[in-house]
C-alpha cells in the first residue's frame, strides 16, 4: 500500500511536533479540511497495522501523537528504568476520580465523598502533576480549588474529560440530594 501525500504530511507533522497536534493545527499546516485529515489518519493507522508496525497514531489529551503498542511496554520500559514513577495508590486513584468529576473542587468536597483525610493523596497528585491548584473558592477561608491537568488525560489515555467513564451520569448523581437519590437507582443496588 502506497500512502498518499497528505497522509505522509500528517505523519511527518505528528512525528516532528513537540506537543500533541490538534486537528486544527493539522488542518492549518496541510491546508486540508477536518474530514480529509481524519481519513488520512485512518489510512496511516491502517498502513501501520498492515505492515505490522509497533506504532499507532492515537488521540489523547486533545491532540494526536505517535504511540508504541502496549505489547512492547516491557521492552521500551528498559529505557526509562528508575525514572518512571510508580503506579498510583488506591487513595490517590479515588481522590483523582473525585477531582476529575467534580472539578474545580475543594479538599473538603473530596473528603466528604471519601470520608477520610485526603491531604497526602492530594499532595501526591499535585507532585505527579495530575491535578493543579486552579483557584480559590470565594467562601470563608477561601479554600483552594483543584482541577485536573493535561498530564492527567495523558496518563489515563483520555482524549478529553467527556471521555471519562459514565461522565454524565456521575455528574447528575453529584447534583442530587439524598431524597432524589432514593428515587433513582442509577447503578443497580445489586452491584455491591
Amino acid at each position: 500500500m502506497i500512502l498518499d501525500r497528505l497522509a505522509r504530511e500528517v505523519e511527518a507533522l505528528i512525528f516532528a511536533s513537540e506537543k500533541p497536534l490538534s486537528i486544527q493545527q493539522l488542518c492549518e499546516c496541510t491546508g486540508s479540511g477536518e474530514d480529509s485529515i481524519h481519513q488520512a489518519l485512518d489510512r496511516l493507522n491502517k498502513a501501520f497495522l498492515d505492515q505490522q508496525h509497533a506504532l499507532t497514531i492515537i488521540d489523547v489529551a486533545g491532540g494526536f501523537r505517535i504511540a508504541t503498542d502496549s505489547e512492547f511496554g516491557g521492552v521500551v520500559s528498559q529505557l526509562f528504568e528508575g525514572r518512571k514513577p510508580g503506579k498510583l495508590s488506591r487513595a490517590a486513584l479515588e481522590t483523582m476520580a473525585v477531582v476529575a468529576y467534580s472539578q474545580p473542587c475543594t479538599r473538603m468536597a473530596i473528603e466528604s465523598i471519601r470520608g477520610v483525610n485526603c491531604d497526602s493523596a492530594i499532595r501526591t497528585l499535585l507532585e505527579r502533576n495530575m491535578i493543579r491548584i486552579s483557584g480559590r473558592m470565594e467562601t470563608p477561608g477561601r479554600p483552594l480549588l483543584y482541577s485536573t491537568t493535561q498530564a492527567f488525560l495523558e496518563y489515563f489515555g483520555l482524549s478529553n474529560l467527556d471521555h471519562l467513564p459514565r461522565f454524565d451520569e456521575v455528574g447528575e448523581l453529584l447534583g442530587m440530594s439524598s431524597s432524589e437519590m432514593e428515587e433513582r437507582d442509577l447503578f443497580g443496588s445489586d452491584k455491591e
Partner: peptide, 19 residues
Amino acid sequence: IAEELQRSEETWTEIYTSP
C-alpha cells in the same frame, strides 16, 4: 471509577508516546 481508572493506568503505562 477509581477501579476503572486503575485499569486505564494499567494499559497506558505500557504505551509510550512521542513526545
